[in-house]
Write a protein that binds this DNA or RNA. Structure first.
Length: 917
RNA sequence: GGGCGUUUAGCUCAGUUGGCUAGAGCGCCGCCCUUACAAGGCGGAAGUCGGCGGUUCGAGUCCGUCAACGCCCACCA
């Protein structure tokens, strides 16, 4: 009664969807594929049947990348008529080796871009790397140091050449790694932040911002790294909590009448004190304001000033003011016209201004100063003090705040235009909660110090005239001084913060400021995928610059990934020694396994604890898929799978069931991927593949493949379902799916095929009942230690005729059951009854099991059913529930009650029947 | 000092408009080498969803509060 053609309408979309990639491409890909296959087959034996029983990722994964590239799959031009869709890679540091975080981040981007490509978009994933000023310079300097050289021995020009040479030698490492993991970036558009084009963009931006008054040069307190010998921006300083000492020092009034006690964690800076500050409202120091104190050790006479910046609660309420080495002190000095005396130099040694401490290292000087203060009786007390100390994020050295002449971006006017698009929805963070962090950070933004005293980077396009002292900021080197006409201007020595060029990445890589085709077509980009650790460094600044220079938000969806953590919950890090190297993993388990494991855990914005068990499970999935295709190829001729235009004729109920489930899975998978819920999406597909296709459909197909009437439809369905699984999985595990595609489909590349379209096939009635019945019998067997080899006879009462129509043989093969389909047996006594929906199965117990032992089992089932029934009834008896709950929920409960009551009746009857034996 | 996150089976984690008889992988127990896969199959045990209080017909899911752990930010002299 089923199986008569129900639901076999042929949706036209299915038939038409094949052409979306253009025919020219397929000719090319077929040719390249043949050579890949030949190389593969030569290592195996003969044609069909060369697939080994277990999957070896290494052999397969080394093969495909080149094929994809040669076929031009990764270029958006492969879909010439497609809507543009673009992602720019967060450029890894050129010094770097990709770590597990990159692997996660790029696995997500690849899953997005591969799917979009298969959906027919002109999908561009633009790769590249970042020159990483300090990091790279440090690496090369370290190499030089091994030869006993410093960069100064080489001189600027020669040193920079060395760095380029280093880049040429090591810069390809990242590229190889990206290829190793199968990431589908368009290498023809690869960019580097120091490329001519990008440097040009940097110059334009600098000059324009300068002309707009948004870049200025000035003396401010900056963070200085005495080891890297450069200024740092605020966010390049990492604060760590440390226990220090708060030293209370007595400063005597010069009039000899009393004293004021200041508290400091850095006694050595007192050498540069030019005032003591107290809060104007502080009663304790009312009389001190306006008087002067004598600076101990130095003897300088300094004033006591009143300033609202002083915290009454902290320390003694009186603060020593060292304008040259503390941001707050600098502000106070500005307000009161105090001098700034530098007492610490760029090497972190005491300057000449430090008198007898001249030349001492800052921490030595701290001890020396305190010792001397103590000796002279100025130290009132010393107490432990918890505070956080800034360290250079590159080398870990304690940074030195110091007054320095540097270049800054005035960020104030850039903030609001970069905040507005998030607020009004032109761009969004996923998950949304990051928006608040972003807003808060933007509100408290300070001017950004962009000059670095390095040689590796974009040199600041400013020139100085030694004649008249004028400065020119210009895109090109001026021949003469505009003011005095003098020739031979001196270019600024400093380079720009690396992030100054990175912030232009989404448009500088597309050719901006030139109006290129790529810029017009692929900018603004669609998605940015990045870790939350660089929202401030990078995302915020790209928003500022993107809006300011292109009038466009540089990306629409900002997908924030979590950090990959070790199983101990700590951040994976080489220095802790708990890091998993993605390439070790790829070698041992396969790149696919790594990608699958990462994406299975990639819930938006959540950190990912990764351990090898997950990766191992992912590896086994590859093997499972591999073997599913082997099975398929035992029944389906390679290359005979209906193409997108093909469709199984007269699919049987089993086929219709799996095709309908495939439809539902595609819908759900697409929805979840569109919401960037990778973990859910992959989990959903994974479960469909394993527990429905592999565990049920493949087993059931074995039955229908033997049935001459159904075999052809099942062969086709099998081929179609497995093929679509390969397509759906391809963005996640590209290598194994490509390999299996070549085995099964043998035409074109899965990487370039189109995304599945739904069949519109309706599920047959009876699958749930079948599964439930088989489950019950398997459980029965397990509980009673009945060998699977022991056949079981059943009498089936099937009022709707479902079972007889398509189950008969399924029961036989799935559960070793021989069934009669003509209703209950003559005598029910001594049988156990299994209920599945409207269907009942009667199993004779005599001779199989101890009948009496069935009673407790039944009793347990009754109790459980009663419990559920009571729960549902309780809800339905509550008028509040029936009145207020949505109709479908109420109906669901009613259905449950009906089902449970029926089941309960049957169980009770059964128990009674057992008693009769 | 502010802000955010996490707390669900032995372990690692899912669970997004509140309807759950709470899931997965690994581990554990039992049976099975069934010709795609033993890197497998079948079955099973295992959770008062951190504590307390609240909203609701109904809370793992929303609100409040407490606790533990983690992260970010802060001119903590």
């Amino acid at each position: 009664m089923l199986g008569d053609g129900q639901g076999v309408g042929r949706p036209s979309a299915w038939q038409e969807s094949g052409a979306s990639n253009g025919s020219g491409f397929f000719a090319l890909s077929c040719a390249t594929r043949r050579s890949a296959t030949r190389a593969y087959s030569s290592s195996g034996d003969q044609g069909k049947g060369t697939m080994e029983a277990s999957y070896d990722p290494q052999a397969v994964e080394s093969r495909w990348y080149q094929v994809w590239e040669d076929a031009g799959v990764f270029k958006p031009e492969i879909n010439p008529d497609g809507e543009p869709f673009s992602i720019v890679i967060p450029p890894p540091n050129v010094t770097g080796v990709l770590h597990i975080g990159h692997a996660l981040n790029m696995s997500i981007q690849d899953a997005i871009i591969r799917r979009k490509r298969m959906q027919g978009y002109a999908a561009l994933w633009l790769p590249g790397s970042d020159h990483a000023g300090i990091a790279t310079q440090n690496v090369v300097e370290r190499d030089l140091a091994k030869e006993g050289l410093s960069r100064h021995d080489l001189g600027r020009e020669s040193f920079v050449e060395q760095v380029w040479a280093w880049k040429a030698k090591h810069g390809n490492r990242i590229k190889e790694q990206i290829r190793r993991l199968g990431f589908s970036t368009d290498w023809s558009r690869e960019r580097f932040t120091l490329d001519d084009g990008l440097s040009d963009a940097v110059g334009h931006v600098f000059v324009e911002l300068y002309n707009q008054g948004l870049i200025y040069r000035g003396e401010r307190i900056i963070n200085w790294c005495p080891r890297c010998h450069t200024a740092l921006s605020e966010i390049e300083v990492e604060h760590e909590d440390e226990v220090g000492e708060l030293t209370h020092i007595r400063y005597d009034f010069t009039d000899g009448n009393g004293s004021v006690v200041v508290a400091t964690t850095r006694p050595e800076t007192m050498l540069g004190d030019t005032a003591v500050a107290v809060h104007p409202d502080d009663e304790r120091y009312k009389d001190a304001i306006g008087r002067t104190v004598s600076l101990p050790l130095i003897g300088r006479e300094i004033p006591v000033v009143a300033d609202e910046g002083v915290d009454l609660e902290f320390g003694t309420g009186a603060v020593k003011v060292t304008p040259a080495h503390d941001p707050l002190d600098f502000e106070i000095s500005q307000r009161h016209g105090l001098a700034a005396i530098k007492v610490i130099d760029t090497e972190a040694n005491i300057t000449e201004a430090g008198g007898e401490y001249f030349g001492q290292e800052r921490f030595e000087a701290r001890e020396a100063v305190r010792h001397e203060l103590n000796k002279q009786g100025y130290i009132v007390k010393v107490e432990d003090h918890h505070h956080s100390v800034g360290h250079c994020s590159r080398c870990g050295t304690v940074v030195e705040p110091m007054l320095s002449l540097q270049w800054f971006v005035k960020v104030g006017p850039l903030v609001e235009p970069a905040v507005a698009p998030i607020r009004d929805g032109r761009a969004r963070f996923v998950p949304q909660r990051w928006e608040n962090n972003y807003f808060r950070w933007m509100e408290n933004l300070h001017d950004w110090c962009i000059s670095r005293q390095l040689w590796w980077g974009h040199r600041i396009p400013a020139w100085y005239c030694d004649g008249c002292g004028e400065m020119v900021v210009s895109l090109t080197e001026p021949k003469t001084c505009e003011s005095c006409g003098r020739e031979g201007l001196r270019q600024e020595q400093d380079v720009l913060d690396t992030w100054f060029s990175s912030q232009l990445w989404p448009f500088s890589t597309m050719g901006w400021p030139e109006e290129t085709d790529d810029l017009a077509r692929y900018y603004p980009t669609d998605v940015l995928v990045t870790g939350y650790d660089i929202i401030y460094f990078w995302v915020a600044r790209m928003l500022m610059m993107g809006v300011h220079f292109t009038d466009n938000v540089p990306f629409q969806d900002i997908v924030i990934t979590g950090l990959v953590r070790a199983t101990d919950g700590r951040k994976m890090s080489k220095s802790i020694g708990n890091a998993i190297d993605p390439f070790d993993v790829a070698d041992e388990y396969g790149a696919d396994a790594l990608r699958l494991a990462l994406l299975q855990s990639a819930a938006p914005g959540h950190d990912i604890p990764l351990n090898v068990e997950w990766i191992d499970a992912a590896r086994r999935f590859g093997n499972k898929l591999w073997n599913a295709v082997r099975f398929t190829l035992n029944h389906v001729e390679p290359g005979s799978v209906p193409g997108k235009g093909g469709y199984p004729d007269n699919p049987g109920p089993v086929d219709r069931w799996i095709l309908s489930r495939l439809d539902e899975t595609i819908t759900e998978y697409d929805r979840l991927l569109d919401e960037y819920r990778f973990s859910d999406a992959v989990g959903q597909l994974y479960n469909f593949a394993w527990s429905e296709v592999f565990d049920w459909y493949l087993e059931m197909a074995k039955t229908s493949l033997r049935d001459v009437d159904q075999a052809e439809a099942t062969r086709q369905t099998l081929g179609v379902v497995i093929r679509e699984l390969l397509v759906l999985f391809h963005p996640i595990v590209p290598f194994v799916t490509e390999e299996l595609w070549s085995e099964l489909v043998g035409d074109g590349l899965v990487a370039a095929t189109s995304w599945p379209v739904k069949t519109g096939i309706a599920a047959p009635v009876g699958m749930e009942e079948l599964q439930s019945l088989i489950g019950s019998i398997r459980r029965f067997r397990a509980e009673h230690r009945l060998s699977p080899k022991r056949g079981i006879q059943l009498s089936i009462d099937d009022p709707d005729g479902i079972a007889a129509a398509w189950w008969r043989d399924q029961l036989a093969i799935m559960a070793n059951i021989e069934a009669q389909y003509d209703g209950p047996p003559g005598t029910i006594a001594g049988h156990t009854r299994i209920t599945a929906g409207n269907i009942q199965a009667f199993m004779p117990l005599t001779g199989l099991v101890d009948v009496a032992a069935e009673r407790p089992r039944l009793q347990k089932a009754i109790t459980e059913t009663e419990k559920l029934l009571d729960r549902s009834r309780g809800k339905l008896d509550n008028p509040n529930f029936t009145d207020r709950a949505p109709a479908d929920v109420v109906a669901g409960e009613e259905r449950k009650v009906a089902e449970m009551s029926a089941k309960l009746d049957k169980l009770r009857t059964q128990l009674a029947e057992l008693t009769d034996v």
